[in-house]
C-alpha cells in the first residue's frame, strides 16, 4: 500500500512516502508562514523521487491540528484535494499524537499563546488525555506529576527542553489505529479554539 504523508500543522513542513508501512521518502524542515509556498513543490519532488504518481497513492495521511491556524489548513486542504480527485483514502492524525510513536508514553505540547498550551497525552496505543488546551501552569504541573512520560515539542516558551519529534515516523506509526474519513470533502481541521 502506497501512502502519501503530509503535515504543516506547526512551524514545520513535512512530506513523506511509505510503501507497505516502510518509509521510502521523507523530508521535514522549518517553514513557518511559508508552508503554502513550499508544500506543493515538495509533493512534486516526492512524486518525482519515488516515481509514484499522485493518482497511484492508496492513502493520504495528514495532520489535522491542533496547531497554527493557517498551518493546519494548508496540508489538509491539499490532502483533501488529492483524496477527492484520486479516490485515495484520507486519514487524519492529531498533530500532537504524531510527536511520539506507539512504543512510547509521552506528553505532546504546542504553544497555544496567551499563556496556554495545546496538550495531548498518550501511552502506547492509549489516549490518556485527549488533545485539549490547558494553561501553562496546569501543563507544568502535569509534567511534574508525570515524570515517567517523555515530553515532546518546542518548549522554549515554557523554559523547558522538549524532545524533538520525528513527524513522518510518528504519523505512520499511528496510522493503523485511525479510521479513514468517510467523506473527505467535508473533513475539518481541529483548532480547539473555535
Amino acid at each position: 500500500m502506497k501512502v502519501l504523508i503530509l503535515d504543516s500543522s506547526n512551524t514545520d513542513l513535512s512530506v513523506g512516502v511509505s510503501i507497505d508501512n516502510k518509509i521510502i521518502y521523507k523530508m521535514s524542515y522549518e517553514a513557518w508562514q511559508r508552508q503554502s509556498e513550499f508544500m506543493i513543490p515538495e509533493i512534486e519532488k516526492a512524486v518525482k523521487e519515488t516515481g509514484i504518481e499522485l493518482k497511484d497513492f492508496d492513502e493520504i495521511l495528514c495532520g489535522k491540528g491542533p496547531g497554527s491556524y493557517t498551518g493546519i489548513r494548508i496540508a489538509l486542504t491539499i490532502a483533501k484535494t488529492i483524496s477527492v480527485m484520486s479516490g485515495a483514502k484520507l486519514k487524519l492524525i492529531s498533530s500532537l499524537r504524531m510527536f511520539g510513536n506507539r512504543e512510547k508514553k509521552f506528553i505532546a505540547l504546542i504553544n497555544a499563546r496567551s499563556a496556554r498550551s495545546y496538550i495531548g497525552v498518550y501511552d502506547h496505543d492509549q489516549i490518556i488525555l485527549e488533545d485539549t488546551i490547558l494553561s501553562n501552569e496546569e501543563v507544568k504541573k502535569y509534567i511534574f506529576e508525570h515524570p515517567d512520560y517523555e515530553v515532546y515539542g518546542d518548549l522554549n516558551y515554557l523554559n523547558l527542553k522538549g524532545k524533538e519529534p520525528m513527524i513522518i515516523e510518528g504519523m505512520l506509526s499511528f496510522s493503523s489505529l485511525i479510521k479513514e474519513e468517510e467523506n473527505p470533502m467535508s473533513s475539518k481541521p481541529v483548532y480547539l479554539k473555535d
Binding site: W32, S68, Y69, T70, R113, S114, Y191, K193, D194
Partner: peptide
C-alpha cells in the same frame, strides 16, 4: 476574531 492572530502577536 479567531484567525490565529496570536501566532504573530506572540511571534518572531
Amino acid at each position: 476574531a479567531n484567525i490565529g492572530l496570536e501566532e504573530v502577536i506572540e511571534g518572531d
